[in-house]
Amino acid sequence: MDIEIVGISKQFGRFKALKDVSLTIPSGELVALLGPSGCGKTTILRIIAGLESTDSGSILFNGEDVTQRRVGERNIGFVFQHYALFRHMTVFENVAFGIRVKARKIRPKKEQIKSKVFELLRLIQLDHLSEKYPAQLSGGQRQRVALARALAVEPEVLLLDEPFGALDAKVRLELRRWLRRLHDEIHVTSVFVTHDQVEALEVSDRVVVMNEGKVEQIGTPEEVYNHPATPFTCDFLVNVNLFHGNHVK
């Protein structure tokens, strides 16, 4: 599903978080929203999800205006920065939640839910921890459970807020490569927010560089890195030379 954002503005009190932002996210791509903190990237993500309203502008999913549609009706999966796992539920129950709250007539049978959840737990390689509680898991494990929980409702769009922000360097590297592979497998349109240049350049198909509530540049990692269009993009990416031209997909 492609996402079109048309002229969105958003203000919190006196702070202008987004100033007339427009951008298109093509179907099936993995897109990074990159920028320093306070640039409005998380706000865009939350507006796409429907967790935040817009002051003006509209959001279109596959050409259909969803600006007024409620969170639960947008068919999105959201992975929160601090995972937001349900602390009183086991890993299994967390992943099953989105299926269990479906209306009775479209809710699958118990055995189907179980096999679906275990399928997802195998995907994230945590099927042996299904009876553990979030507090008993490591950061990387929680992150993967959060992802499995979001995928359980078979979203058409996957939104990830600083997905690797709270992890240590080694786990971070593993997880982002894993996310890239996962995306190559399931091809769901995905948008993730990050302030880490390397992460954006290494993982995504397309990078949206943002600053002070505006989009500075949109392009493939090669484009934004080799041909920065604005002084900000140039400055923001200039110290990143881990790239060395061997970007592997």
């Binding site: 969170v71 937001a84 709250v101 979001a150």
Partner: peptide, 16 residues
């Protein structure tokens, strides 16, 4: 509010 927001994104209604 994150857990509540997570529930909403997973399709749960207000009462659920």
């Amino acid at each position: 509010r994150e857990e509540e927001e997570a529930a909403l994104t997973l399709g749960a209604g207000g009462l659920q």
